[in-house]
């Protein structure tokens, strides 16, 4: 594959992420990987459901009192918006508009960073209330489920930052198009998982 091959929006293929065998492999492989990740999160969800509100005798925490929906709602908005901005980025990628793609990805990253900041704030708040990781089975399962999601967000941020800077000077080609594309897949996946966390953990915790 020639990295220096120059494209124009006209010669740029319709599915640049799948235009090479490597890209196609990455595309299929990443979808499969996300399948595995789904099972991973499913296991975490199931454990959380089983251990929700469970603690030692005299345990003082419950989902109703602990969670603060307004904060979580803001976080949800941030992450959902970032998913949308990553869609814009991929739109520009397909049109061979590198600069706009980079811009939208940067916005995506910033939104993700804000989300992560709020999550750190949220966790910190819980810990100050005494709801620490080792406090109970409930706290362990909560921090592991939501924390694993947070960890995925962090990994995604590092990933996209590296991609943005690594390719800043050389622009789009068929080699990195699939990298950008898999990132966007990953980001949507994280978003979907968050929707489930928002519903199952927070909404059902406060209301249900």
């Amino acid at each position: 594959m020639d990295l220096n091959k120059k494209f124009t929006p006209e010669t740029w293929p319709e599915h640049p992420e799948r235009a090479t065998l490597e890209g196609k492999n990455k595309f299929v492989g990443f979808w499969l990987f996300l399948g595995g990740e789904t099972i991973l999160f499913a296991t975490l969800f199931a454990t959380y459901m089983a251990l929700k509100n469970k603690g030692p005798s005299g345990f003082g925490f419950s989902t109703q009192e602990l969670y603060q929906l307004p904060l979580v709602f803001v976080m949800t908005l941030l992450l959902l918006t970032s998913s949308l901005t990553s869609v814009y980025a991929m739109h520009h990628m397909k049109n061979y508009n590198f600069k706009k793609m980079q811009l939208w990805l940067a916005i995506t990253a910033i939104l993700g960073l804000c989300f992560l900041g709020l999550e750190v704030y949220e966790f910190n708040h819980y810990v100050h209330e005494g709801f620490t990781f080792g406090n109970s089975a409930f706290s362990s399962s909560f921090f592991t489920l939501v924390g694993t999601h947070g960890f995925h967000v962090a990994v995604g941020l590092v990933w996209i930052t590296l991609l943005i800077f690594r390719n800043a000077k050389r622009g789009l080609n068929l080699y990195n198009a699939s990298k950008y594309y898999t990132f966007s897949l990953y980001w949507h996946f994280i978003d979907v998982v968050w929707v489930f966390i928002f519903t199952v953990v927070y909404l059902m915790g406060v209301i249900g």
Binding site: L40, T43, L44, T47, A50, L51, K54, G55, P56, F59, F133, G134, N135, S136, A137, F138, S139, S140, S141, T144
Partner: peptide, 25 residues
């Protein structure tokens, strides 16, 4: 992977997934 993480966390990082006295199972 998840199960082994639970076990690791329980044994090494103070978690309580399986400690029934702390609500685990």
């Amino acid at each position: 992977t998840v199960g082994l993480f639970f076990l690791t966390f329980d044994r090494m990082f103070d978690a309580n997934f399986f400690d029934h006295q702390m609500g685990g199972n």
